[in-house]
Design a protein around this nucleic acid. Structure first.
Lengths: 352, 352
DNA sequence: TATAATTGCACAATCGATGGTGCAATGAAT
DNA sequence: ATTCATTGCACCATCGATTGTGCAATTATA
């Protein structure tokens, strides 16, 4: 922390050293020098000097001039669960492979925070933005449009920008059906034993609830409103819902559809308060995949959303010149109990 | 995507509209106007115009001029596990509470990627940087020093910058002891039944191994080299190690010390290949906390590193004018099986 | 009323890179 | 030996904000 923070070299320094003009230096170092008919030898000279002096471009200056930044943003609701963290991981790999710099920011599901964060990103001339699970995607959209920023919604759709989301209806159908079928035929699951917990009034939750109810109607006879308990996306509220149910009924439902791994953590909290015996005959379906969750002491069937597919599609859309405002559905995957899937980390080389 | 991406308002636009000079507008909007003795009425006029025209400062321009950006960086090895994702979550909250903009980037444990990423951050005049779990912290340090960027290592220490890390030795001691004591006294764990898997040749792994061996020596009589299997930080290598052990010995060790939740995922993959019976008499200690991991069908004792404590300390250090280059140890916490701790997400308001 | 002090603001340089334009030097064509 | 085309590069305005400095107008003091 004590050496001379000697100023970074600029094109002007190199210009003096090389005897060329700053614009020549600039052209050489940003690759446009052929277009500007700079001699190869001049280019080499400058490149050597740049290397010697450890030149790196000031990206703020470049960004100011060209009103682009080389940054690509991912706006998340939260970091701390496997769905969104694997999204961040996948996103980074994509962006890096395109030679740009990924930056990931979360906005805590707070519409105001979302807008402020996007404003900030815009002020840095972020080139593209993926808006994941936004509470107010259309508010974000307005800001992006005003500054001409390419963006795509992911996970939760908006009405005004292209959106790439999981096929929540089909995923929920698969999951519900798998839960029902997981029970043996000598003691099959009854309609009033299958509950859905978690989620709130967003598109994903609505679609999942729709799928859940449809399958219940088709495979069982009942489909009562009381089997749906939206608790928001918080472990705490979910826990309370489980506790209340347990107080009321003396047990948990035998079949549980849990709307996200975040809500699933509410069940963990409940579990911590009760002996394992309370979970002997239970089957859980969770709309989200968490490798550890898959190995709990009762059958846990999970849905893995195709994060890579969604991110890929999102970039595809943003690369179009006039993206169509529509919602693309990406098929998720049903994951049977005790399954350890590979994830984005497996793409990372680990020496040793 | 089609409306007029009408250019964002600048201080020059407001200058024309208000009849004041750009410098006056600038001063008003960045809060230095009192110092510049601008009339209150002028300030109000300009502020109103700014609001009407939705002025937001171009942060690249500001950053270029002032060579500061308002950005604070967190460099992670990876996103996709609960330890680092909770670190990101906690970091964001801290940075936001200081009115700055958090940006989180991962570098995949690749020294070259680490340096490149930091170079990029420096080119954006990031104000401060937390370097988490870097493979080559001192390489990163060199870059930071060269440009006068305040930075602190976290999770893994460097020799050249202040570092804040978990007390790995003590944590490993606690964990090892807890695993041993978890066995009943009628069939106590023997020295050759307690193995350590995972980690590589970094400071954290070394300290954990040291703690592990010390406790083995103290509580059991043996402490053989063959009970240590560093596998790197990858699920895959860990899985292979478990499989090999299993092929060789016909079972897993009864006591397992797993060096990180990433390696624990290797055990999950192993589990997927084998029936639950193979895990009846097993006790796992994992140096990392994952809420789902805590509820697996065998006892899992975990260490939760005090991420909040580490981040807090890191910012404290960076706020000092001449930080001492030393390593600060933060005490981790022993988490008994079947425990659902609150995390950073609980700090987030969830409406409904 | 003349002078000094204060108020309120405008001017202009600057941060580092980009890209349009212009022009001298060289080589080719007539 | 002119004229024309090409090569190779320098010049300069520009992106949007910050900040040191200077100066007129106003108010206070003598």
């Amino acid at each position: 922390m004590e050496h001379q923070p000697k100023k970074k070299a600029t094109i002007y320094d190199l210009s003096v050293l090389s005897g060329s003009s700053p614009s020549t230096v600039s052209a050489v170092l940003n690759g446009t020098w052929r277009k500007r008919r700079i001699k190869e030898s001049t280019a080499n000279l400058i490149r050597n000097l740049a290397e010697q002096h450890q030149y790196t471009a000031n990206l703020q200056a470049r960004g100011l001039r060209s009103s682009r930044s080389g940054l690509v943003g991912l706006l998340l609701p939260v970091h701390d669960n496997r769905y969104f963290s694997s999204m961040a991981q996948t996103f980074e790999a994509h962006v890096r492979s395109r030679g740009q710099c990924p930056i990931v920011v979360s906005a805590c599901r707070d519409p105001e925070e979302e807008r402020q964060t996007v404003e900030t990103l815009i002020s840095y001339s972020v080139d593209e933005l993926i808006v994941a699970g936004a509470t107010d995607p259309d508010g974000v959209h307005a800001l992006c449009v005003a500054s001409g920023l390419k963006h795509v919604n992911i996970d939760l759709p908006g009405a005004l920008a292209p959106s790439v989301i999981s096929d929540n209806y089909r995923g929920a159908r698969m999951l519900t059906e798998a839960v029902i079928r997981h029970f043996s035929s000598d003691l099959p699951l009854q309609a009033d034993e299958l509950y859905l917990f978690g989620g709130r009034d967003d598109h994903a939750s609505r679609e999942r609830i729709r799928g859940f109810r449809a399958v219940k109607r088709e495979l069982m006879d009942g489909d009562s409103d009381k089997c749906i308990e939206p608790t928001g996306y918080s472990p705490n509220m979910a826990q309370i819902a489980f506790e209340q149910f347990y107080q009321r009924e003396g047990k948990l439902p035998r079949g549980l559809f849990i709307n996200s791994s975040i809500n699933f953590e509410g069940l963990l909290r409940f579990m911590a308060q009760h002996p394992n015996e309370a979970f002997l005959d239970i089957v859980v379906g969770c709309y989200d995949y968490d490798p550890f969750g898959s190995f709990l002491p009762f059958p846990v069937i999970m849905i893995r959303q195709d994060v890579d597919g969604m991110i890929t599609k999102a970039f595809e859309i943003m690369s179009e010149s006039r993206p169509v405002v529509q919602t693309y559905l990406i098929q998720p995957q049903l994951v049977p109990p005790r399954t350890a899937l590979k994830g984005p980390l497996d793409a990372i080389k680990d020496i040793e």
